[in-house]
Design a protein around this nucleic acid. Structure first.
Lengths: 244, 244
DNA sequence: GGGTGTGAAGCTATTCACAGCC
DNA sequence: GGCTGTGAATAGCTTCACACCC
């Protein structure tokens, strides 16, 4: 989904360990962070890879391999220090810095995103809200003035915004995307159910809510479909197996 | 993220071609469907794998391989008939049937989901809305009465709901999840940023909005970080490469 | 000629299993 | 003794390239 930024054969970046954390690992780091936050809250000071993996919902081999890409932050025979590992992962992801974000499109979803506590708690700061509907501008949402879409470029520059969130109808999403890119935004999270084109150097992730449901429906259908295609005896057997 | 349902060595399901479409393929079928819908709307009757792949944002080899898992729906030397392929994929995913859905938690996000047009247009019917806050029950959202959480089991049974959507705070998500499962729901789409436990036979997908942002932040940081670690000359070179 | 369907090759990710260190 | 970190083995996914059919 992410249009991978093409790069010249990456300068062997000096300094800390191997650059080049696998994409699959990057996608799981936030999971580990969430698990570590939970452990920290419960006052746990040290975890083994088994325990942490369980809290994160992955197996421990995968966890250890993932962490090994970041460096050697554990102690053999002991495990990982919760706060230390938490900091290291945060730093790796970049959450130790401030990320001002603009949300474009303040409909129901934009509202939800603007109020989403999970953003603020992870270094993401909703710095600006923008909507094309003049009747919406000036409205107070999550403690911010909704600004008119015309101000987009100015807001991006003013707040040094690098990340834009598109929560508009699909129809205008490409337009908004182009304007964000032109304004200097280099990472875009898109919730409009449409394919967006971005130039190299701009990262794009699209979350299509209906796609997630469709994937569930596929598996759901197979559960039922399988059952219907079976003899009653087989159906009972399957039901028992499924029930575990 | 999906807890894979463990099954007895799957009865070699009689009838149509090989069961067992790879998970990666399943996740892309909705993309093809979306692309085909766009083409159909523009009156296109036939597409080649090259054209369809472009509309869906994948390469054509992948598209052809994906489609080959469903059957042989194209014509050599010609391409695919848009409406026919669209129907076949819809059927494969299960969108030709009705999927009543319950949404639990009618905050900002629940509101957004209840009103999301992308659901209805794909066979998903929001059949019930549920919230634990008594002051919310009775409220009209998207043409439905919000019902109290106490009615959850009854609503699931009444509407034969197989898919539940959790849009509650993380704190209560496991509770809601357990109740959905007990009530008979076998597919769950979770928007609460927490790890949920479900028994075998229940499919779970979790969408964590902040995780998507974190992944973007990681890459964003590397763009800047790399630039900062370089000499000015290298930075210029990198900037040019990035710009393409 | 043109474009699908598909074996084979290549690549990425996951899992295994154990050496090495505490 | 216990648990991390990691090579080696395996599994899964993507891409190539072309036989085959329209």
């Amino acid at each position: 989904m992410t249009r991978r930024t093409r790069r010249p054969q990456a300068q062997p970046t000096a300094g800390t360990a191997a650059r080049g954390v696998p994409e699959a690992t990057v996608a799981r780091l936030p999971l580990y962070l969430r698990a570590l936050a939970g452990l920290a809250e419960r006052g746990v000071a040290t975890v083994s890879s088994d325990e942490l993996a369980e809290s994160a919902g992955v197996n421990s081999a995968k966890l250890r391999k993932d962490l090994s890409h970041l460096g050697s932050y554990g102690t053999r025979g002991v495990g990982y220090e919760v706060e230390y590992l938490r900091y290291q992962i945060s730093r790796e992801i970049g959450l130790t810095q401030d990320w001002p974000v603009v949300i474009v499109g303040i409909g129901n979803l934009g509202h939800a995103l603007a109020n989403y506590a999970g953003f603020a708690s992870r270094g993401f700061r909703v710095a600006a809200l923008v909507d094309a509907d003049p009747s919406r501008t000036g409205e107070d949402v999550a403690g911010l003035d909704v600004r008119h879409a015309d101000d987009l470029e100015q807001l991006v520059a003013e707040h040094r915004i690098a990340i834009g969130v598109i929560a508009t109808p699909a129809r205008v999403a490409q337009d908004v995307c182009d304007r964000l890119v032109t304004a200097g935004v280099t990472s875009i999270l898109n919730f409009a159910p449409t394919l967006l084109q971005v130039p190299d150097g701009v990262d794009l992730r699209t979350v299509d809510l209906s796609i997630e449901l469709q994937i569930l429906a596929y598996h759901e259908q197979r559960k039922n479909g399988a059952a219907l295609a079976l003899t009653p005896e087989q159906a009972v057997e399957l039901a028992e197996a499924v029930r575990g």
